[in-house]
Design a protein around this nucleic acid. Structure first.
Length: 861
RNA sequence: GCGAAAGUGGCGGAAUUGGCAGACGCGCUGGACUUAGGAUCCAGUCCCGCAAGGGGUAGGGGUUCAACUCCCCUCUUUCGCACCA
């Protein structure tokens, strides 16, 4: 009898040994097949990891260990998304430097990761807030700044090539851009040229109304505003106009959409990206007014004849120009009111539509009618052109507005399967299909073909153009905060220009946000003033840091480049990327975008960074439906759990608790189950009970145990690869129980030892500490984690006998053990001779007999 | 409102994708043993019934020899989007 299982005895010992030996260090590219297994880039919070966080780190670790044992060169790194508000706010609160806090917090994370046996290669640890890292974030910023999206190549190109083209041929060859002849270009000064080029650059500066969080005192991205409130502070977001830096992600909208198709990602995540990009096809049509054309976008050009008024967004640039003198006061008051309203007020459900008449009229190009132009806040400046044609008969929003303000409604689509619509009696709009009417020569055209026909006609008559519109906006990156990557730009008399890299954050005592909306960096003259001009003082939002970190891990300490292209070509794309679904849109979209830009510019050979993606389900507090959170005081830490049960039991329970993608409550009692299982493994391997001596049953018992062994090996391998970690554990438990029972059988030493060897190797990725300890106690050469995964043998896993299920009319009436290779003939025969089957047939002749090979016979009467 | 996912014992959850519902674990009930160890071991545990048998995967309908699985409707929960022209 050996010592009982006691993880406290050996877990710390092995953790130290592995660390000292750099057991999990990953070498550079070599000839082995590679597997890059990556967890989402975490911000190391001061609270440390909870058992909920471990839900993804344990399974990816098991996967990494499994692939190592399968002979793969595995990259499994960890680093810190260290810039950003949480660190900065924590530092302000504690009156210390955020860099110091991050060092402290990340050391704690690392300690916890080692505590639970995660096999990260710590020689590749990166920290996005160090100049060694963020100088390359800046470098990528400048690559975007120095590039533009050439629609002809459908790819990013150097901006220098565009300058050359403009000088030679002007902008004539490029569709949809502000016109510029070669002669005009020649006469422009440096600053004017730069202004013009900012319409093209993939990183550009533009005035924009931003979401201003009055508590955080910073600009928030659209994605950081939830129901009109800041995602962290919960404060009502205000609007503010500032010069902001953007990345032109909209240029990549089509490719970001199209390339989703081939990704092995959860369908709901792909769908969320599709919806976020929000592609819709339609037409752009110009309605002429005395002060210029009003461009509108519509997905239903077949309803153009039903436009009875127009609506502009209050932010539309032509509103005041268009408004007649007698209406100015009213319109201006309305605009001011709209500006004051938060988005949450503006979009509140069931709100009465408001608006005012501008006094102006616009000409509908399809029928030359003059229709009134209104201003209303239900039209959003951020989508389409900020102006719409209102077709009240066929759009619910327009219908409500028309009814509210007594505007005319004209039916131009008659549904086929309903009574004819009457404008006077309609209670809601008809947005569905039907035949066109009151539409001149198009009358009678059904919706199935009308949209395409009208669009074609608009194009051929020059009244409009085909247009694809996206909900996706450009990615705003400017943050008026200290703790971020400085935007590497200098503003001089000649306009903006790239700064020399790196632009490092000054080490300062005070970095609280200012009340003016300016970055704290603006108050530091040594930082702002350079020989060439004034530095940009905004820093980048942290999504920039995480948009490329997966590339840096391939070559994390390169001093001369963001990464070595050969290392990146070997390791990337990421084979398995795992993290929470809360990053479904922003991070994943931005990372895909940067990958595509870097691909276009020739830095990486692939177009998608993450081949496979999985989201772990959340672990809730034990009491049921609450999330674990410090404020609720229901957080369970790996530290306390390891102290009580050991790291291996924690790891096994993290896997066993539920399907990987499902949310589920934590249950400390459940840990006892995985703890008991590990103890049973420990005992059955290290000190099996004496078995009965070999006899004439031994050959059969050996075959049975060997079959168990190989079946288990096959299922465990498949389930690890398929991300079914809960059934990995249950399968291993069943096998352990089978071994336990085999102790009472006259199994030979050979078969028994083969089984325990295989069990131990299969347990190694799950319970690395115990597996290593048993391995050492068996006096085998260190380390078990460098052994090969055992091969399964299909022939040995094959069943000798099967259980044939006998049914009558689909109800189970009996089960019979039969040899595995039985013929259909035999199966039918056995079924019909079966006493229970005969009883339920009750003398009636079988009408039909269904045989599912090796499984079941169903007799139908 | 729109979209997506989910709903299975007292609990967490399985079910080779249309073929034995409830694997595995927790808990619970008996029993054995005891070097008192988070003991362990043995047996049992969906519901009704002594049994034969019957019922059962949120509810209702349907397809099928056969449905947790596919289709339609309803309810509940979670998540995402939310006046997107």
């Amino acid at each position: 009898m050996s010592e009982p299982y006691d993880p406290k005895h050996f877990e710390a010992k092995w953790a130290e040994r592995w660390e000292a030996d750099q057991l999990y260090r990953t070498g550079p590219a070599d000839e082995r097949p590679k597997a890059y297994i990556l967890d989402f880039f975490p911000y190391p919070s001061g609270d440390g990891l909870s058992v909920g966080h471990c839900r993804n780190y344990v399974p990816t670790d098991v996967l990494s260990r499994y692939y190592r044992m399968r002979g793969y060169n595995v990259l499994h790194p960890m680093g810190w998304d260290a810039f950003g508000l949480p660190a900065e706010n924590a530092a302000i609160e504690r009156k210390t430097n955020p860099a110091k806090l991050i060092a402290q917090f990340s050391a704690n994370y690392k300690r916890q990761f080692c505590l639970i046996g995660i096999s990260f290669d710590w020689t590749r640890e990166i920290n996005s807030s160090t100049p060694e890292y963020y100088r390359w974030t800046q470098w990528i910023f400048l690559r975007l700044y120095e590039s533009w999206y050439d629609p002809r190549a459908n790819a990013a190109q150097p901006i220098a090539a565009l300058e050359k083209e403009l000088a030679e041929r002007g902008s004539a060859g490029i569709a949809g851009v502000p016109p510029m002849t070669a002669q005009q270009w020649q006469t422009l000064g440096a600053r004017e040229r730069k202004d013009y080029l900012s319409h093209f650059r993939l990183a550009y500066r533009a005035a924009s109304t931003v979401n201003w969080d009055p508590v955080e005192k910073t600009v928030l991205a659209n994605e950081e505003v939830i129901d009109g409130r800041g995602w962290r502070s919960g404060a009502l977001v205000e609007k503010k106009t500032l010069m902001q830096w953007f990345f032109r992600i909209t240029a990549y909208a089509d490719r970001l959409l199209a390339d989703l198709q081939d990704l092995d990602w959860p369908e709901n995540i792909k769908l969320m990206q599709v919806n976020w990009i929000g592609r819709s096809e339609g037409a752009e049509v110009v309605f002429e007014t005395p002060v210029g054309g009003l461009h509108i976008f519509t997905t239903r050009p077949d309803t153009l004849w039903g436009a009875t008024f127009m609506v502009l967004s209050p932010e539309h640039s032509l509103v005041l120009k268009l408004t007649t003198p007698d209406r100015q006061a009213e319109v201006q008051a309305y605009i001011a009111e709209a500006r004051k309203k938060s988005d949450i007020d503006r979009t509140a459900e069931g709100r009465e539509k408001t608006g005012v008449f501008t006094g102006a009229y616009a000409r509908n190009p399809v029928n030359d009618e003059q229709i009134p132009v209104w201003v209303a806040d239900y039209v959003l400046m951020g989508y389409g052109t900020g102006a719409i044609m209102a077709v009240p008969a066929h759009d619910q929003r327009d219908f409500e507005f028309a009814r509210g303000f007594n505007l005319p409604i004209r039916v131009v689509i008659q549904p086929e399967s309903k009574p004819a619509l009457q404008a006077e009696t309609m209670t809601e709009a008809w947005p569905g299909e039907g035949a066109m009417t009151h539409s001149g020569t198009f009358d009678g055209t059904p919706t199935s073909i009308s949209v395409a026909q009208v669009t074609e006609w608009l194009e051929s008559t020059g009244k409009g153009k085909r247009r694809v519109n996206y909900k996706l906006r450009d990615w705003g990156i400017s943050r008026q905060r200290y703790w971020g990557t400085p935007i590497p730009i200098i503003h001089s008399a000649q306009g903006e220009e790239p700064a020399e890299l790196p632009v490092t954050l000054p080490d300062v005592k005070y970095y609280e946000p200012t009340d003016t909306g300016e970055s704290p960096l603006a108050a530091i003259p040594e930082f702002v003033n350079t020989e060439k001009g004034k530095r940009e003082t905004d820093t980048m939002g942290t999504f920039a840091c995480s948009a490329w970190y997966y590339l840096r891990f391939a070559d994390p300490h390169n001093q001369n480049a963001a990464f070595d292209p050969q290392q990146v070509a070997y390791w990337l794309p990421v084979d398995m990327y795992v993290g929470g679904a809360e990053h479904a849109v922003m991070h994943l979209l931005y990372a895909r975008f940067w990958t595509k830009v870097l691909h276009d510019l020739g830095y990486v050979p692939f177009i998608e960074p993450f081949k496979r993606l999985r989201n772990q389900g959340m672990i809730l507090a034990p009491d049921g439906k609450e999330k674990m959170s410090k404020s609720k005081g229901n957080v369970i830490t790996p530290d306390e759990t390891v102290a009580e049960w050991g790291a291996d039991a924690l790891r096994a329970y993290e896997m066993f608790i539920s399907d990987f993608e499902m949310a589920t409550p934590w249950n400390t009692h459940g840990l006892a189950g995985t703890y008991r299982w590990l103890r049973r493994v420990w005992e059955v391997v290290l000190s099996p009970a004496p078995r009965p001596a070999a006899d004439d049953r031994t050959a059969q018992a050996d075959r049975d145990l060997t079959r168990w062994t190989h079946k288990t090996l096959r299922k465990v391998s498949q389930d690890i690869e398929g991300f079914r970690f809960n059934t990995v554990i249950s399968t291993l438990m069943e096998f352990t129980n089978a071994l336990h029972d085999a102790q009472r059988q006259p199994v030979s030493d050979r078969a028994f030892n083969e089984a325990t060897d295989v069990l131990l190797l299969m347990v190694a990725p799950v319970a690395p500490f115990m597996a290593e300890e048993i391995w050492a106690r068996q006096s085998r050469p260190y380390s078990i984690h460098q052994q090969l995964w055992p091969q399964f043998d299909l022939a040995l896993a094959a069943d000798e006998t099967i259980t044939l299920v006998l049914q009558v009319n689909g109800k189970v009436r009996g089960r019979i053990a039969m040899p595995a290779g039985l013929t259909e003939e035999q199966a039918r025969d056995v079924a019909m001779k079966n006493e229970a089957v005969q009883r339920h047939l009750d003398g009636k002749p079988p009408r039909k007999l269904i045989y599912v090979p090796g499984k079941l016979v169903n007799v139908v009467v």
